[in-house]
Design a protein around this nucleic acid. Structure first.
Length: 468
RNA sequence: GGCUGGGUGGCAGAGUGGCCAUGCUGCAGACUGCAACUCUGUUUACGCCGGUUCGAUUCCGACCCCAGCCUCCA
């Protein structure tokens, strides 16, 4: 199966051919840990999680590295504000990050490197860039000299003239060129710092990724991902550093950027303050519903995030589970998509895999899942229904959905004890048999008042929890 | 101003030179004691103006709007 992905640098969809077919290498920029992540951060994690799942289903060996930025001036400021040690803050936020990602069904990467664990690699690269004439020391800082890189701007299609000098960049007096950016900066004694040839200091933002990519994946990688707000300046600068270091500006074969999540017409961002944390959303909705909502739009498009989207996603997801549930009398209890992954009982369904391989078209993939669900609902043949059920679970595995058992999905968190529910259902069944419909309806209403909805099937009456 | 990406039916959101996206919602029908679930059907959809074409939502050109990046940001 060919995979095509949109490459930011070449601004076109390209067929994905790994540098070495037996080992795909992908690096994604994770968040800076100084607060709870918001759902926009979650979107990025989910998107690349699906990409990695798809890659793994096509290629035998994929190494996925997703970093954590744990040295940053915003972290320092936040720790000061809270009056706690910097390390405590980054540690707490990292634990919280893992909780939130896990709730969204995001699998752990193979390696999750931290900036603070790679200071030596960082200083090594900086020294080399100085030696090669791409960087210089000035007043305790080390700066990358942008005009020294003939390829600068080629990722985001900017000419040096376009970057209006001094317009919005900090013009420090020690900069040779206003576009020059920091590789290393001095730390006062109360700030985190490491000894270096240029004195005690800390790395600039961009160099950590260059160093961690090299350390964990080597000088060349297949895919580098992140939010499209990172394309400039972060990835452009990183490309300048790594490209100049190895003298290979194409050290990343494919650049992939996800679109932003919008609240109303505006991007959700910490600086605008219009954020919804994953933690807060999880109080009202399942992580799986949030994940469905994220996947309901194409990853490169901006996604309008609102209550209606979540509500629609919840209903759509329920209809998929409903198909599994409806098939149970015929094919037995359904496993979860994770159980499918363990057995791989059937081939992954084309109506889902094909759109995913076409630049991660998750809306079409979801349409494919609904198509399978619809056919499953119509099927009366055990063999066919079993295959459809397994295909649906396989699709769920690819998208990170259908992770709960049918029983968990429909009957968890009931307000009534199951024995009590069963007792009432028995009474209703008896009432129905005696044609005492007023009594039957009365019992049904009583259950519904407690958030329990009833469905009569040819195999008897079943129930599910509904939101009240 | 420069560089990206958009404007699709009640809502969300794919996609294509002529044929059903899909989901949710509404309406009608089947099933049901009635419901629920499921199934079936269903509402002049493609920003505006030109052009190419037998035919354009899809290609080309102009225009109008929207968002993102150019400063930290997924």
């Amino acid at each position: 199966m060919d995979i095509h992905i949109y490459d930011t640098k070449q601004r076109r969809k390209r067929r994905f051919e790994p540098i070495t077919p037996d080992h795909v290498k992908i690096y994604v920029c994770g968040p800076t840990v100084y607060d709870r992540i918001h759902i926009g951060n979650g979107l990025s994690a989910v998107v690349f999680d699906v990409l990695v799942r798809v890659l793994r289903s096509v290629f035998p060996n994929v190494t996925y590295v997703r970093n954590i930025t744990d040295v940053d001036d915003k972290i320092n400021a936040r720790a000061l504000e809270l009056g706690i040690p910097i390390h405590d803050l980054t540690h707490e936020c990292t634990v919280a990050l893992h909780e939130d990602f896990d709730a969204l069904g995001v699998l752990l990467p193979d390696v999750e490197p931290r900036a603070t664990g790679h200071i030596e690699e960082i200083t090594t690269m900086i020294s080399s860039l100085i030696q090669q004439g791409h960087a210089y020391e000035a007043e305790g800082h080390v700066l990358f000299h942008v005009p020294s890189d003939p390829n600068y701007g080629s990722l985001t299609n900017k000419s040096l003239e376009d970057l209006i000098d001094g317009a919005r960049v900090e013009v420090a007096p020690y900069k040779r060129d206003p576009k020059d950016f920091v590789l290393w900066k001095p730390s006062s004694s109360e700030l985190p710092g490491w000894e270096s040839p240029w004195g005690r200091g800390r790395p600039g933002w961009h160099i950590e990724c260059s160093a961690m990519i090299r350390e964990h994946l080597g000088n060349e990688i297949d895919i580098h991902g992140g939010g499209n707000d990172l394309a400039f300046p972060h990835h452009e600068n990183e490309m300048a550093q790594s490209g100049c270091f190895t003298n290979n500006p194409d050290y990343v074969k494919y650049w992939i950027h996800n679109g932003m999540l919008n609240l109303g017409a505006e991007k959700m961002s910490k600086s605008l303050g219009n954020i919804q944390t994953v933690q807060a959303l999880l109080r009202e909705h399942s992580g799986e519903t949030l994940r469905y909502a994220i996947l309901s739009g194409h990853y490169r498009q901006s996604l309008k995030w609102d209550d209606e989207l979540i509500a629609q996603s919840e209903r759509s997801l329920t209809s998929l589970y409903q198909a599994l549930r409806n098939s149970q009398p015929l094919v037995g209890d359904s496993a979860t998509s994770e159980a499918y992954a363990a057995t791989k009982s059937v081939e992954l369904p084309e109506e889902v895999l094909v759109p995913l391989c076409d630049d991660l078209n998750t809306p079409r993939a979801l349409a494919g899942m609904h198509e399978l669900a619809s056919r499953l609902n119509l099927s009366t043949d055990v063999e066919e229904a079993t295959a459809l059920r397994d295909q649906l679970l396989g699709a769920g595995w690819l998208l990170g959905l259908l992770t709960r058992s049918v029983a968990d999905f429909f009957t968890q968190d009931a307000n009534m004890a199951e024995a009590e529910i069963d007792r009432l259902i028995e009474q209703r069944t008896a009432a129905k048999a005696a044609k005492q419909y007023d009594r039957a309806d009365q019992i049904r209403a009583e259950l519904l008042a407690n958030g329990i909805a009833i469905e009569d099937t040819t195999d008897g009456t079943i129930w599910k929890v509904v939101k009240q």
